[in-house]
């Protein structure tokens, strides 16, 4: 059963209603948004980052994330305040949030956007991110319906989660942050440590 809730990082969010009648909600680097409401549109701007738009057409629940890097480097310290930057964690958080809103893992469908290699001379972070997301969906048996990855331009992505509709436009002049955007403070719980009862 669909739950008429919209959240960003687990916190209810209303968004701003625009002339098109939709409530627009921005999703920045490291965030994830989920919703079961028809009038919600998530928007994000991507450079080398990747956004996965997942939706369950039966439950009419969808969600989007925006991750910066595929996976932590070996030995790299990661805590709950930074883990959202990584695809492997961002995907799991997004799916878990959607399941709480009534989606089912075996009904999920996916669109992927981003993964551009914008800065010449830098290692192919965008390609790595796109490859990770594609591989993750295959492992999870989540059908990839639409893939718009790579290239050298930033993208603006709009996603209507309850309908599973997305679109992307290339954005030539977008300022795409090279470092994580400011993000509301979250408790920094060090991951990976054993909390023995």
């Amino acid at each position: 059963m669909r739950v008429a809730i919209t959240q960003v990082d687990g916190v209810p969010r209303r968004g701003n209603r625009r002339a098109d009648g939709l409530r627009h909600i921005g999703v920045i680097q490291g965030e994830r948004g989920v919703s079961g409401e028809d009038d919600v549109m998530f928007t994000t701007i991507l450079g080398s980052c990747v956004a996965a738009c997942l939706f369950d057409p039966d439950a009419q629940v969808g969600g989007i994330n925006h991750f910066l890097l595929a996976e932590p480097q070996p030995g790299q310290r990661v805590d709950t305040a930074t883990a959202h930057r990584y695809g492997v964690h961002a995907m799991e958080l997004l799916i878990n949030d959607m399941l709480r809103l009534g989606a089912r893992r075996d009904r999920l469908r996916a669109h992927l956007y981003g993964g551009a290699n914008i800065l010449a001379g830098m290692r192919s972070i965008g390609s790595d991110n796109g490859a990770f997301a594609t591989r993750f969906l295959a492992q999870e048996h989540i059908p990839l319906i639409l893939s718009d990855l790579g290239g050298r331009s930033a993208r603006r992505v709009d996603f209507r989660p309850a309908l599973g509709r997305s679109r992307a436009r290339l954005v030539v002049d977008a300022v795409v942050a090279a470092s994580p955007s400011p993000r509301p403070a979250t408790p920094a719980v060090v991951s990976g440590e054993l909390d023995l009862f």
Partner: peptide, 25 residues
């Protein structure tokens, strides 16, 4: 804990830390 768990590890996990946690329990 009330259900009877021995411990809790927050994802994402570091294989080295996970291995150390396993050896403890």
């Amino acid at each position: 804990r009330r259900a009877g768990a021995t411990g809790w590890i927050v994802k994402p996990f570091d294989p080295v830390k996970l291995s150390a946690a396993i050896r403890r329990v």
